[in-house]
């Protein structure tokens, strides 16, 4: 038996990424949706690291899991009255079957494209050396304009979000 360690890791991580993604469709309530999303994001972070993108994998853990998911959990806490007891009928799901059928159709089309088009596989970047230095150089040379634009965008977005989310004064009593 000569089973490559990378192959085993790929299939394990692919399962961790894909199965929770479909559990997000099937989960009963909104808190479980968030935690299945957490599992799926962890699987994708592992796939990034397996692809040799160590910096991206850690950024995924820091920004997605540490930031966006916590933000989503705060959103759930502030917007649902009884998040753990929302049954599927009341405010949970429209139709799981419709969602799954649509997902199957979308996947069929994408899989036909992926398997039908012969993507050219060059040598690529396979030495597995750390990418942080090269990424920093790329961000500050070739991609410096998008980098600055996106930082300004992030500043505006965070100011706008803070402005919109702040609690309004009660105007009725004024």
């Amino acid at each position: 038996m000569d089973i490559d360690f990378g192959t085993i890791m790929f299939f394990a991580l692919a399962l961790v990424a894909v199965v929770p993604a479909f559990m997000v469709v099937l989960a009963r309530d909104i808190v479980r949706v968030a935690f299945w999303l957490l599992a799926s994001l962890c699987g994708v972070a592992g796939l990034y690291i397996l692809l040799g993108a160590d910096f991206i994998g850690l950024t995924q853990v820091l920004v997605y899991i540490g930031g966006i998911l916590v933000l989503i959990l705060f959103g759930i806490m502030m917007t649902s009255k009884d998040p753990l007891r929302q049954k599927a009928g009341a405010s949970g799901q429209r139709s799981v079957v419709t969602g799954l059928v649509t997902a199957a159709i979308v996947f069929a089309v994408l899989a036909a494209v992926v398997l039908g088009v012969g993507f050219e596989e060059g040598k690529g970047r396979s030495d597995g050396s750390p990418t942080t230095t090269a990424l920093g150089e790329a961000l500050l040379t070739d991609y410096v304009l998008p980098f600055e634009l996106v930082s300004v965008l992030l500043l505006f977005v965070l100011c706008g979000a803070a402005y919109m989310a702040r609690r309004r004064r009660e105007d009725a009593h004024a």
């Binding site: 990424a17 949706v33 949970g92 799901q93 429209r94 649509t102 997902a103 979308v106 996947f107 992926v114």
Partner: peptide, 23 residues
């Protein structure tokens, strides 16, 4: 690419089937 296609399909399924905007 197939793993990514499965995740994309799952995401579309979530958008279609969920009623809660956060989901």
């Amino acid at each position: 690419l197939l793993v990514a296609a499965l995740m994309f399909a799952a995401g579309v399924g979530v958008i279609i089937s969920r009623r809660n905007a956060i989901a």
